[in-house]
Amino acid sequence: MDLKVNWQMGDKSLVVRSQGSTELVNDIFFAGCESVGAAVNVQMGKQTIQHIKNGSVKEVPFNFDVRCDGLKPDTKVPVKVYFEGNSQADGMLKLSNLGQPGVASGVGISLVNDKGVKLPFDITRSVALDWNREVADGSVYRFTGKAKYTPTGGEITPGKGDATMSFVINYN
């Protein structure tokens, strides 16, 4: 590549000449990532108020997979995830329709990953997914977590204890 620049100001001029080369390499990690399978429905089951109060509620495991296509063989790209939902803090999901008739109160859903880290509800605290396996044209990453009912303060009353959250794949 040859470059020539002429500057002229009044009766004075300056000429700059340069010669060199540039190599442009397009090395794409992958085409994209997407969730594998249907929505995950975590069956929490019925719990007694006493078990919730004393913390003896059983944790319910859940997981989901994310497939990243277009990866070069043996390339392990870090894929992270964070969550969105009605959350009062990381790791704590509020119940749906809170305050409505027939909905439990004084209780929320505690959420952690398999390493005990509270699930983040902000992109800046995204947690890494674990590489699971290779598939045609890519890799599968897995998230494994646990959910359980936990007191949130105030009187615990019986009722429906449903909640909804979404996960956002972060692979930038």
Rank of each mutant, 00 (worst) to 15 (best):
S13C: 04
E134F: 09
F64S: 11
H51F: 10
V40I: 02
V60I: 13
G154W: 02
K94E: 09
Q8D: 14
N113I: 10
N86H: 04
N26R: 10
V60A: 09
D130G: 03
S21C: 10
S87V: 05
A163F: 00
G106L: 01
T48P: 02
I109F: 02
D162P: 02
I109N: 06
N97K: 08
K53N: 06
S166T: 13
N26L: 10
G159V: 02
R142Q: 12
K58C: 09
T48V: 02
L3G: 03
V60S: 15
P61C: 01
N63H: 14
I49A: 01
A128W: 00
I109P: 11
L24M: 11
A38N: 11
K12D: 15
R125M: 12
P151N: 03
M1G: 09
L3E: 04
I28K: 12
W131S: 07
R17E: 10
A38L: 05
D162H: 03
L3S: 13
V16A: 10
S87K: 10
S110C: 07
I49R: 02
V57Q: 01
E34M: 13
N6A: 05
E59G: 10
S105R: 06
P151M: 04
Q8P: 07
K94Y: 07
T124V: 06
L111E: 08
G116P: 03
T150M: 08
S13V: 04
V117P: 05
K58W: 05
D27H: 08
G108C: 01
R125H: 09
A31M: 08
G153M: 06
P78F: 13
